[in-house]
Write a protein that binds this DNA or RNA. Structure first.
Lengths: 251, 251
DNA sequence: CGCGCCGTTGATATTATTCAAGACCAGTGG
DNA sequence: CCACTGGTCTTGAATAATATCAACGGCGCG
């Protein structure tokens, strides 16, 4: 039932990942790795995990629609977008993932990826073979539960986006997006008020269900109103309160 | 680690659920239950599962936002809506679930429900205690994997809705919705061309990110164009091909 | 340098919402 | 039995929001 036991790894991958990966607000990688506990070492060899940190250049594709699924990826650094591609040519960005977050869950349900993941900047990921994760989940109750939460957080994230797409005006969506980015940057230890957009206006538009022109216009408007300062892809949040109120009360 | 072994149940809940629950297109309840195999009987008592079939009257609430999460629900018959409620009062229907489908996954990530589930008609559900599911998932590799797929299918469903909300026109969304309903009805063994909407125009609108007036107008238009026939909440699909084309090519 | 992609802004068109009125229907109480 | 009420649904007209079309400037890169 379990894979053959392997000698204690010379390098404890769990500790290693924990030590060097940044924290994420939605999913604490620390939890994910630590809760596995010492039992984990017994079934997972250091090499199997550690030999596969992979780099992707900006624009490179981590996986395409239909690619066989067999691993999740922890983002070491960099960021990527997750794109839904319908047969009809319809296209929608379904997610934006940063360091410390985990991508690839869109492949679990069908053993093949439903989306395409593309690096928005140079990035490095750690590959976590899915069958090993599942073994670990069976071995440790705590880890198993944490893993189930991870899977389910993916739907929570999607729900939040649905709420945005289904019930917010364009300006509220953009405000929401910027606040989300801000929070996540802060969680990574970066400034929460000044950050760089890694997506083009086009991509942001696709993510928010808007056209690129609308995104551009709104950024200009926000700047005109003193909510923020935009310079290309660099955004400086000036009035976080006003931006939050825009999302919540929409005036 | 495992709960104390319990004598073989007099009633095998797995078989029972399988025998009486209808099939669902997205998640085959049959798979969910059958893959557990005979091992399942060893840790799950018949009573613990079987004593909790619950009925809800139309309009009754299965769980509210913030309610502690400890079980999933298999719908025996009836249907329900899943509603997202933001603090700001913003509201969005995030899902519509029919017989054979499983609701409650929105609670997994935080041990508390993120959504509210409300019966759209009289319904009966089977309660599946989450910790027992997790035990089973640890015991059986096959079941565990199936369970992980179930969790992940919830995000797939949400992704599909995101694609709809973010990239389709109003008429395409409605067409998409009707086709989805049609398929799911067919999978349950009912007619795929004539069925009853269990939601009000208002609820359909919320689900599709539209106002109730728009939904009403579109239904009238579709009828005028000969795509379907509407009589209150009864819909008869007349030209499925045209409806599909509307979604895919949008003319 | 020139090309392609990116971003901005304006004018216009389209789409969907909002506001408003009235029909229908089921349930309720006089 | 009837009138009344609240919720639902339809439809029209006016309005607001967003997309589309178009032009142009800028930047990075071969």
């Amino acid at each position: 039932m379990l894979p053959p036991t392997i000698l204690p790894p010379s390098v404890d991958w769990i500790t290693v990942i924990f030590a060097s990966a940044p924290r994420s607000p939605t999913w604490k990688l620390a939890d994910f790795c630590l809760i596995a506990g010492p039992e984990a070492g017994a079934i997972l060899s250091g090499e199997r995990i550690l030999t596969v940190p992979t780099r992707f250049r900006k624009g490179a594709v981590l996986y395409r629609v239909g690619d066989p699924f067999d691993a999740l990826y922890v983002i070491r650094f960099g960021s990527c977008k997750i794109v839904l591609l319908a047969e009809s040519g319809r296209e929608q960005i379904a997610g934006y993932y940063m360091a410390g977050e985990i991508v690839g869950i869109d492949g679990v349900a069908r053993a093949a990826h439903k989306c395409e993941a593309t690096a928005l900047e140079d990035m490095e990921v750690w590959r976590l073979p899915f069958d090993e994760i599942e073994s670990l989940a069976r071995l440790s109750q705590q880890f198993g539960h944490g893993f189930h939460q991870l899977l389910s957080q993916e739907s929570e994230r999607a729900y939040t986006l649905m709420l945005m797409l289904g019930s917010m005006r364009a300006d509220q969506r953009l405000a929401f997006f910027l606040l989300d980015l801000s929070q996540r940057h802060q969680a990574l230890g970066y400034s929460s008020c000044e950050f760089v957009l890694r997506m083009t206006r086009q991509e942001i538009g696709s993510y928010l269900g808007l056209t690129l022109e609308t995104v551009s216009r709104l950024l200009s408007r926000f700047q005109r109103e003193g909510l923020l300062q935009v310079e290309g892809r660099t955004v400086k949040l000036l009035d976080r309160v006003a931006v939050s109120q825009l999302v919540d009360y929409g005036d």
